[in-house]
Design a protein around this nucleic acid. Sequence first.
DNA 1: AAATTTATTAACCAATTGGTTAAACCATAT
DNA 2: ATATGGTTTAACCAATTGGTTAATAAATTT
Lengths: 204, 204
Amino acid sequence: MKKTKDENTEELILNAAKHIFQSKGMVGARMQEIADKAGINKAMLHYYYRNKQLLFEAVFKNAFSLLAPQLNAVLNDDSSIEDKVKNFTLNYINFIAKHPYLPNFIIQELNRNPGFLLKMKDNPAFPNIEKFKKQVAQEVENGILKPISAEQLFINIMALNVFPFVAKPLLVAFTNTDDETYKQLIEDRKTEVADFIINSIKHT
Amino acid sequence: MKKTKDENTEELILNAAKHIFQSKGMVGARMQEIADKAGINKAMLHYYYRNKQLLFEAVFKNAFSLLAPQLNAVLNDDSSIEDKVKNFTLNYINFIAKHPYLPNFIIQELNRNPGFLLKMKDNPAFPNIEKFKKQVAQEVENGILKPISAEQLFINIMALNVFPFVAKPLLVAFTNTDDETYKQLIEDRKTEVADFIINSIKHT
DNA sequence: AAATTTATTAACCAATTGGTTAAACCATAT
DNA sequence: ATATGGTTTAACCAATTGGTTAATAAATTT
């Protein structure tokens, strides 16, 4: 039934779709282009995924399932806030280097269709802030952190880590850097961002 | 020649195009939809703006020209870094409340077509980091600020202020908030973000 | 007011696009 | 070998879309 080859047709399609959808978005992507990239007939896309919307959802869920564990490392890990900030900052930048289109793709498509998230919220791996809230409250109470709400801290962590990728073209232009220099700037952020955050929230 | 009415047709089109392009993006927007929103015939769009691309560019430049002065307030104003951070944070959040689609629109379209920025870079009002670099270096040297590069500081300021709008659907979902609560969270950031930044960079 | 220029419209067009269909292909079980 | 079921293809289709055109209406100039 299934070809025991390197990639069966279904995966071939999903991979091609991933590339096209992530670089052109749902509306910009063309079914023919996906078929071409996969090296198969366009009818096969419909044979395996029925229509564009379902193929897109398969790609989106796939992308989201890559991102979720990264965020859960901040929200649900047992180490201290300080350690988690340090680890997340380091890991996330490495992670995105491997999936450069990912944050933009997810953000863009969710803004186009926010209802999309509802389909994922029941997933038990869906990132949730509750545990993190208790931990922040605890560390604030213990005098480890200065008073801050978990929500604001989480937003700040996300912002400082994700934004440089999302807004890369703008930031490259405003800071007068070329691609190579910008890459170095991002590299420096692996430690700088953590320090920036810790500096601000840690009680002295 | 020109109607002295409230809005002439050209403006009518630009306004309608602004709404449609900003909510659906260049590829998602339909010329017919823009014409309908403007209450005119589709052929008029071509009469005034020749084609979709040129109409889009008019909208984009218009949006960009709204954003640029905001950023220049950080980069080129004469007040201290601390004051600029405080003012920008406050002003930017108010500004976006009036133009909610703007940051996403610009970021999305620039990622689709980064070459677009080249057309704007010659504009003298195009935000440039040079003056800000000197100022940061100066304040670091004077012991007002802890050592930090102007680029990283600028990226941090942008990230903390812009990201909560760009990633709103994601952040609402992860922080388990409804729209109203999120609005309040943003409101709190008018001062929280500035404190967060100052806390981190100011020498004690 | 006649002529001319500008603004506006309805109808049309060619190209693109997501999706369908019917036939062919191919591996496996009988 | 042949019947069977899933797989793949080429050709086709209806709808959408950006853009054009030729005729009309409304200003503006003469």
